[in-house]
C-alpha cells in the first residue's frame, strides 16, 4: 500500500530522489555518533530543530484556548491547566520545551565556537545562526508574558526596562516595545502577535537559510 502510494506520486512528481538525497546524505565518520559516541555533540542543532517542531505543534493547540486579553488570558491559561484534556501536559511541554531549546541552542553555539567552524567560508551561516539565537530568545521573552500572571508581568516590566538605557532613542523604544507607557493590554496583544506570527515567520525563513547553507557547504571538522 505504502509502496504503491509512493510509486503513484513518483510517477508524477519524482520526489523520492529528493527525499533520498536528504535521507541518505553521507556525513563524515567523525560526526557519526554510531561510529564514535562523542560525536553526539554534532546533534545539538538537529535536536533543537526537533524541539522547535514540537513547540510549533503544542503552540498551535494551545492557541485553541488561549486568549491574548488582560481579562481573559490568565483565566484561559488556568482553564487549559484544569479543564482541558491533557491541557496541563500540553502547556508544560510548551513551557519546558522552550527552556530545552535555549539550552540546546547554547550548546550548539558553543560547539560551533569551540570547533572554530564559523570561519571562512561559513561566516554567513554563523551570522544566520546568531540571528536564529536572537529569534529564539525573542520567543522566550514574548512567550513569558502570555499567561499574564504576576511573574510574567514583572519579568516583562524588568525586560522592557532595559531598553531605557539605549542612548537617545531609549524612551521611545521602551514605548514601542511595550505598546504604550505601561505594561498593559497593548503590551499583551503586541507580544502575542510577535510570539505567534512575526517570530515564527522569521524563524522558518532563517532556519531554511541555515539548512541550505550547511547543505551547500557541508560539515567541517574541528580546526
Amino acid at each position: 500500500m505504502y509502496t504503491r502510494i509512493v510509486r503513484w506520486i513518483d510517477d508524477r512528481l519524482m520526489v523520492s530522489p529528493l527525499w533520498r538525497d536528504m535521507a541518505d546524505h553521507p556525513v563524515p565518520a567523525h560526526v557519526n555518533p554510531s561510529e564514535k559516541v562523542s560525536a553526539f555533540v554534532y546533534c545539538f542543532g538537529g535536536v533543537t530543530f526537533l524541539l522547535i517542531i514540537a513547540q510549533f505543534v503544542t503552540g498551535m493547540f494551545l492557541a485553541m484556548y488561549y486568549v491574548p486579553d488582560i481579562i481573559n488570558s490568565y483565566n484561559s491559561t488556568k482553564y487549559i491547566m484544569h479543564h482541558v484534556l491533557f491541557g496541563l501536559q500540553l502547556l508544560s511541554m510548551h513551557n519546558w520545551g522552550s527552556s530545552l531549546i535555549i539550552i540546546m541552542v547554547t550548546l550548539h553555539m558553543l560547539r560551533i565556537y569551540w570547533m572554530g567552524v564559523y570561519k571562512k567560508p561559513r561566516e554567513l551561516n554563523w551570522i544566520v545562526g546568531v540571528t536564529l539565537l536572537l529569534l529564539i530568545l525573542g520567543f522566550g521573552f514574548t512567550g513569558y508574558l502570555l499567561p499574564w500572571d504576576e511573574k510574567a508581568y514583572f519579568a516583562t516590566q524588568v525586560g522592557v526596562s532595559f531598553t531605557k538605557y539605549v542612548p537617545f532613542v531609549g524612551p521611545a523604544l521602551l514605548k514601542i516595545l511595550s505598546g504604550g507607557s505601561k505594561i498593559g493590554a497593548a503590551t499583551l496583544t503586541r507580544f502575542f502577535a510577535i510570539h505567534v506570527l512575526f517570530l515564527p515567520a522569521m524563524l522558518i525563513a532563517f532556519l531554511g537559510l541555515h539548512f541550505l547553507m550547511i547543505r551547500r557547504q557541508g560539515i567541517t571538522g574541528p580546526y
Partner: peptide
C-alpha cells in the same frame, strides 16, 4: 506530542 495536542483539541466532546 500528539497525545496532549489531540486531547486538547477534542476536549469539547467530553
Amino acid at each position: 506530542v500528539a497525545i496532549p495536542s489531540v486531547g486538547a483539541a477534542i476536549t469539547p466532546a467530553f
